[in-house]
Structure formats: C-alpha cells, structure tokens
Amino acid sequence: MKKFLAVAGSLMLAASVLMTGCGGGGGGDKKAADTNKEWKPTKDVKVIIAYKAGSGTDTGARLLLNNAKPYVGQTMVIENKPGADGKIGWTELTKAKPDGYTIGFINLPTYTTLAIQPNAPFNDQSIVPICNHLTETGVVVVKKDAKWKTLKELVADAQAKPGELKASTNGVKASNHTAAQLLAQSAKFQYKAVPYGGTADQLLALRQGEVDFSCAKVADIAKLINGDKAELRVLGLFAEKRDPQLKDVPTLGELGYYNKWYGSARALVAPKGTPENIIKFYETAMKKTMDDPKVKEAHQKAGMATDYKDSKALGALIKEQMDFCKNVVTKLYDK
C-alpha cells in the first residue's frame, strides 16, 4: 500500500510539473501572456510634469494631453511636481508603480545631466521611453528695451566686465544653464549664473530686470517676443542654420561662437518595469494625437512644432544625451 501511494504521488508530481511547463496555470507564463495581450487604461492616467504650471514643458504637455482622450480613452491628469531642477518630479516618476497609470515627461538634457550626478536618485535605466513630443532650439534673449541690440554687443560688454553680467537659468546645470555655459565659453567671457525654479521663473526674472540675459528655448519665449506687448528680444540661436520664424536672428556659429545645435527634447516616459504592451499602447495613442490636424494647429499657434519619435528612436536619443552630458556638459562646469 505504501509503495502504491509513493508511486501515485510521483506520478501526480510529474503531471504537475508537466502542466506547469506547458503553461497549465504557471504564474510566470500567465505574466508573460498578460504583457503580450492588448492593454488600455480603464481609469484616469496621472502624468507627472517636473516643472510648474505655465512653464514651457507644462504648456506643451497640456496642448498634447488635453487632446489625447479620443485616442487614450481616459483623461490624462497632469500633476505638476516642481523643484530641485526637476529632480523632485522625476524621482517620484521613476519610483511609481509600473502599471501604466503613472507616466511623465522628461526634458533632455536636464534629465540626463541630473542622472549622471553622484548619488542621483535615478539614471537612464530608471525609465522606459514612450515617445518624443517636442524638440526645441535654444535662444539667447534680453529685455526688449535692453541696451544690447545684437549678441556681439552683449558679448563685448560681458568681456569688458568679467563676471558682472548676470544670467537667469532654470536651475544649476539644467538645460538653460548649459546653454549659457556653451555661449560664455565659446565667446570667451565670464558671467554670474542665477538659478531659478524653472524656465517660467527664469524668464520672469529677466522681464523684471533682475538679470541681464537668459538662454531658453524658442517655445518658451514665443509669446514674449511678438506683438505690441513684446517683452523680450532674441539675439542668437543655437542652431546650424537660421529658423524661418526668426529669420533676422543669427545663429551663434555665424558670429563665431558655439556652432552646433543645442536645445531640449521633451518626451514621454514610463517607470522602469512598465510592460511592453503598455508602452506600445501609449506610443500609438500619442502618435495619433500628434497627427490630429487640430492638435498640430494648436501647437503652431503656440509657436511649437511636434517632433514625434517612437520608443526606439527616443531610446537612442536618451543614450545620445547621456554621452553628451558625460563628454561635453561635465567639462563645461569643470572650468
């Protein structure tokens, strides 16, 4: 009898192992199957913006997400988490549950600049790329009534008064600080960088006369340079050729300064571990949203142009920006 029970037990165990190996209810196989089947959200989706309301990132994100419901099926709820040059919002984003109900925007190269710092709370592996939204070119701006009419005049004054001119930035080593460094080091002058909580605050400081100049992105200053109530003047463009919308503004390279493109990419990402089917859903939904003629028109009216890149292309861009931060940005602040 004991021998019979032992044989029976062995047969049951073997059958159990065989069923598990063939997908007969094994947990691992069920999880794999879940990640392969189609996914879509069944409740509101939280989207973290690491900058305050009214910033360039926030403005662009709202133009996109407020029109995304027909393609997402649910409301995209923006949560602004400003502070520490973006670190507060991005730390929360990277630590969120990877279930598709929390995604967020990153700004490049600011995200990658922070990611390579010692003891950073996140890195390039803490996120999964979804798609790129905007690619914005950098500009040098002053107040509309500033005494400098050209970038050459600003540089000459800065060279004559080493360290006296002040530039507002969107945070220490953030994207616009890096732009100011690229300008200053290529034009061989010293200045004082004054960090603010983000681009909106940075440009407000310039408009109020707290600083002498700033570096920002085209979309950030679009509403501040046109019309009778224009408050700012653009002196230079971080590009290899002129922008048709700013045809009278020279590139820095034309003037003998930094001669490569520099700006910011604003992209949607998810926390590490987010399944591929969720990433694919948002990648497709955002592509449809950006292709919507009404969405394109809304961006154009705001001085923005969408620049969709899928998850693979965005992943390559993040890697490229990591290399840029390691090999170029770090050297700007070592001097």
Rank of each mutant, 00 (worst) to 15 (best):
L206I: 12
Q202R: 00
T251N: 06
L255E: 13
G21C: 10
D58A: 14
K294Q: 13
D248S: 14
R62A: 11
A53Y: 00
D85R: 09
T59D: 08
I278M: 11
M286A: 08
T178Y: 00
R242K: 15
L232T: 13
Y101A: 03
S126Y: 02
S214H: 04
K319F: 05
K247D: 10
L232W: 11
I49L: 12
D99W: 06
E283I: 05
D310P: 07
D34K: 13
A222H: 15
D58Q: 07
V141E: 05
I88H: 01
A230T: 09
T306M: 08
A15W: 07
R207K: 15
K97F: 02
L65E: 08
E210Q: 15
Q74M: 15
K2I: 09
G263P: 10
I116Y: 00
L5C: 10
A68L: 13
A156W: 04
A120P: 09
G209F: 05
G56K: 02
K301Y: 02
V218T: 15
Y111H: 03
T35S: 12
K192N: 14
T110W: 01
A180D: 08
D220Y: 01
G227Q: 12
A302C: 06
T199S: 14
S175M: 12
L203K: 10
I103V: 13
A298C: 09
K31P: 00
A305I: 06
L268V: 15
L5F: 14
K37G: 00
D291K: 11
S55N: 10
G60P: 11
E276N: 13
I279C: 03
P41M: 08
M290K: 05
Y262V: 06
L5W: 13
D248A: 11
L65P: 09
T94H: 08
I318K: 06
A239H: 04
G9Q: 01
H177Q: 06
T112G: 04
C325R: 09
A216I: 12
F189G: 10
L203E: 11
R62S: 13
M1K: 03
G21E: 14
K287G: 07
P275A: 12
K97I: 06
E283W: 00
H177I: 01
Y333V: 11
A96E: 06
A184V: 03
V47R: 00
A120F: 09
D310E: 06
A265R: 04
M290R: 06
K331W: 01
T94G: 11
K217C: 06
K37C: 01
V234H: 03
K294H: 08
A230P: 07
I127M: 12
K192M: 05
E240N: 04
L134D: 02
Q321I: 02
T137K: 05
N170P: 12
N176W: 00
E276V: 15
L255V: 04
L224V: 05
Y308V: 02
P250G: 06
K2H: 01
P70N: 11
C131Y: 01
A267E: 09
K81T: 00
A96M: 09
P293H: 04
G24L: 15
L317W: 03
I318S: 12
D334G: 12
E231D: 12
K37M: 09
A50M: 06
Q190T: 10
L182K: 02
N119F: 13
T57S: 10
L114R: 03
A200H: 10
L314H: 04
V45A: 05
L314N: 04
A200C: 04
G56R: 02
G198W: 00
T42A: 13
K192W: 01
